[in-house]
Write a protein that binds this DNA or RNA. Structure first.
Lengths: 249, 249
DNA sequence: AAGTGGTCTAGACCACGAA
DNA sequence: TCGTGGTCTAGACCACTTC
């Protein structure tokens, strides 16, 4: 097709060199940014091929990869749809604590402990490079399984990246669950460690000081920058993370 | 190409339906089984295309995916090579403790604690479904960073899946390092938890009983079945696991 | 019945890297 | 220089799903 040059006039910046990668990143950024919300039916392969001035195979290559990555869902006749932002960590499924509790056959409940909607500067932050957090909302809460403390959560939400957070109430809903349904696709970085329960965590989790805890710290970012930081403390030896790896995935 | 049917006469079993997937799995199994060892130059795209009676594009699709999965390394002019079996867990790089220690700028050392070359039945096994281990070699050892106990390792190696283990000595080399270079590609399953140090682990790690430990249990299997089980105990709060996830990987 | 994605072809040109 | 992989094309047929 001769018109290819006309359709992609000049983009010598840091753009990927191959066309199917450019298409892949275009679509990915539209999904990650939220411009194409979950459930949105993206253009058909034939339409995109015409838009990009390329053959359908090239578009197909990009969309197939995004489907394997879990960002798209495709079905014949209906078309291609943006998938709901599922647990990013297929390996460490710890994004939704409610699911985690209910999957174990227990009843989930939740309590807000404290809420500082205008915290200016985080006073606790580990090495996960979170100096980027300035204008934040700071929340502490507890998750229960069958009424027993299951997880103590400390959370920071960036008001820059998530301005809607001002209108949210975390009295009934955990900040994690609210973020999950509000903020588009993002990437997460985890740190997992064992620690002895400190005063505050021990108190809320109702365990003795010094008891072994599994601590997960997670920083999440999307196209707008750092979104949220969370520290989850699981008491004692009752909690396990699972991860499975195979060569081909 | 009309000869396609002749080249793939009858394989109605559980074979993948599409040709590029069949090629992908063929190549993968040859690598995983060790038939194509690391460094082996696999046939050129053109050759495989002729063998399978298909176009080069179809072969390329399969090999591209295997390259992205990390099983192959390709370079123009030279050809396509089987990659060295690197750390399977790109997310949890905990396969090689020596690297882990040295990456932290410390000096690694190692000591064998006990070696039972003919253990008949594991006496300790968690829920990771390891009833498959029968004829085993059982090893306990310690890893040091700058002379300080860094990780206490308990390991079981299946003598069925790894018959060469009989000839191996773990006096100087850790079983993990030996397995890494001996056993072909495999898949791993992890469990991560926090626990209070028990008598034995506390003793060897030189920490007080009840100190919080990060415990990683891993079961590894390959095409021959279960290969090895390992329990790694890291003392105190000095150890952290990192994991990063992005939508597209 | 019609339209979508899934797959495949038989060419092609190019970039890279070893000789 | 020359061979390899990287990419792309302009078709094609099929399977599936919805209508």
């Amino acid at each position: 097709m001769d018109s290819k040059i006309e359709t992609l006039p000049e983009q010598k910046k840091t753009e990927p060199q191959s066309l199917h990668l450019r298409i892949l990143h275009d679509v990915e950024s539209k999904i990650v940014s939220g411009a194409w919300a979950p459930g949105f039916r993206i253009p058909f392969e034939t339409e995109m091929a015409k838009d990009y001035g390329c053959s359908r195979m090239t578009v197909n290559k990009a969309l197939t990869q995004l489907t394997r990555a879990g960002l798209l869902e495709r079905s014949r006749k209906s078309g291609t749809f943006v998938k709901a932002p599922q647990s990013l960590s297929a390996a460490l499924e710890i994004t939704n604590i409610r699911d985690e509790v209910e999957k174990a056959g227990k009843t989930y409940s939740y309590r807000l402990l404290s809420d500082n909607p205008n915290a200016s500067r985080p006073d606790f932050l580990s090495c996960l490079g979170a100096s980027a957090f300035c204008d934040i909302r700071k929340v502490k809460c507890l998750h229960f399984a069958d009424g027993v403390p299951f997880c103590f959560e400390e959370r920071i939400i960036s008001r820059n990246a998530v301005p809607e957070v001002d209108a949210a109430s975390f009295e009934q809903e955990a900040p994690g669950a609210w973020l999950f349904k509000t903020v588009p696709w993002n990437s997460a970085e985890h740190q997992i460690s064992a620690c002895a329960a400190t005063g505050e965590a021990a108190e809320f989790l109702d365990i003795a000081c010094g008891t072994a805890c599994l601590m997960v710290e997670r920083i999440t970012q999307n196209s707008k920058g750092y979104v949220t930081w969370a520290r989850l403390s699981y008491p004692g030896e009752q909690h396990r993370l699972f991860a499975k790896f195979t060569p081909t995935g």
